[in-house]
């Protein structure tokens, strides 16, 4: 360049052509397009939850059957049709809360239920992880890093329901499904959360016991008053009704019943729609004292709440 008298510069050499610059610009645009299409694929993979690990094989559970228990009925236990006593009698149970009373006139009520199947164990991390991976569930708020046989916790009520619906699809479509369960499903049953009555009957059987192991407070049969979750079925409880594990303690178990005053009547579950929904949870958790792990105790949770003390188990029910 040379300087002119007015202070500006005039180029005396050849100015570089535009070809190189134009080519560079075109390459940048193509690279951007390529990169964005890659990002697009990456987003899709994240959305489908491919990154979720289900962990290694678990003793006592079938990795080829959605990590359900390795027994004839994939961990489901039949509860025969019939009536049972629901609610608390403060004369027999000094720890009873007011919301366990049947009515102003009666302490307890009798509820008749058809046959249903309930899972022997609380739903585990491995089981939920299979569902999350398969369905593409957003797991950003769920901790799936614990041992596979720990109960899943920190899920919402809607996620628990979603798991149940997903499992129903699997059971209906799979050849692995035991004939007994398949027949029951084909008769109109569905996989879902237990309602309050189903849960309570499974917990206290027909003898009206206060605790799942009997009517006297005991330790060593359930995980309560402790500071951590234990693997499902870790504590033996031969006296527990229907051979179910962890119906007391470990995690509160969500039900499909909205919290309403007794007497229990599922017919009014879909009434008063303008009220805030709260769903009953049962059984207490590892961090609760013994009065909260009684069979009749009624807690409740907002359907969107997450807590490391709240999990669930499933039933196959015709109701």
């Amino acid at each position: 360049m040379t300087q002119q008298s007015d202070g500006t510069h005039v180029n005396t050499e050849k100015v570089p052509g535009r070809t190189v610059g134009f080519t560079a610009m075109t390459l940048i645009i193509l690279a951007v397009a390529f990169w964005m299409s890659r990002e697009s694929s990456r987003l899709e993979i994240n959305d489908s939850g491919e990154a979720i690990a289900t962990g290694p094989a678990l003793e006592g559970f079938r990795s080829d059957a959605w990590y359900l228990p390795d027994d004839e009925l994939l961990g489901f236990v039949a509860v025969a049709a019939g009536s049972f006593i629901m609610g608390s009698n403060p004369a027999l149970d000094r720890m009873a809360y007011e919301n366990e009373r049947w009515s102003n006139l009666r302490r307890q009520g009798s509820v008749d239920l058809p046959t249903f199947y309930i899972s022997q164990f609380e739903t585990t991390i491995s089981q939920f992880a299979v569902f999350a991976r398969s369905s593409g569930l957003d797991i950003s708020n769920i901790d799936l890093t614990g041992a596979g046989n720990l109960p899943i916790a920190g899920i919402t009520w809607t996620e628990a329901l979603a798991y149940a619906y997903w499992l129903e699809q699997q059971l209906r479509e799979s050849i692995e499904t035991p004939a007994e369960l398949r027949t029951f499903l084909e008769s109109g049953a569905r996989v879902t959360l237990p309602n309050e009555a189903e849960w309570e009957k499974a917990a206290r059987s027909t003898d009206g016991r206060v605790f799942v192991w009997g009517s006297q407070p005991r330790t060593g049969r359930a995980n309560f008053n402790s500071d951590a979750l234990s693997p499902v079925g870790a504590l033996a409880c031969p006296a527990c009704s229907y051979g179910l594990s962890d119906m007391a303690g470990n995690v509160w178990e969500l039900t499909r019943s909205p919290l309403q005053d007794y007497p229990y009547d599922p017919a009014d579950d879909a009434e008063n729609l303008s009220a805030d929904p709260l769903y009953v949870m049962r059984g207490g958790s590892y961090s609760d004292p013994i009065n909260n792990v009684r069979t009749a105790v009624r807690g409740a949770a907002d359907p969107g709440v997450r807590s490391d003390t709240i999990g669930f188990r499933i039933v196959i029910s015709t109701l």
Binding site: S274, A275, P277
Partner: peptide, 24 residues
């Protein structure tokens, strides 16, 4: 599910029964 988690009870009821189409 989103509606139910936002405390809209009709949505929770709809979730529980696939044949329902409750609104409020």
């Amino acid at each position: 599910s989103q509606s139910c988690e936002l405390k809209f009870k009709a949505a929770c009821a709809n979730l529980l029964d696939n044949s329902l189409v409750l609104t409020d």
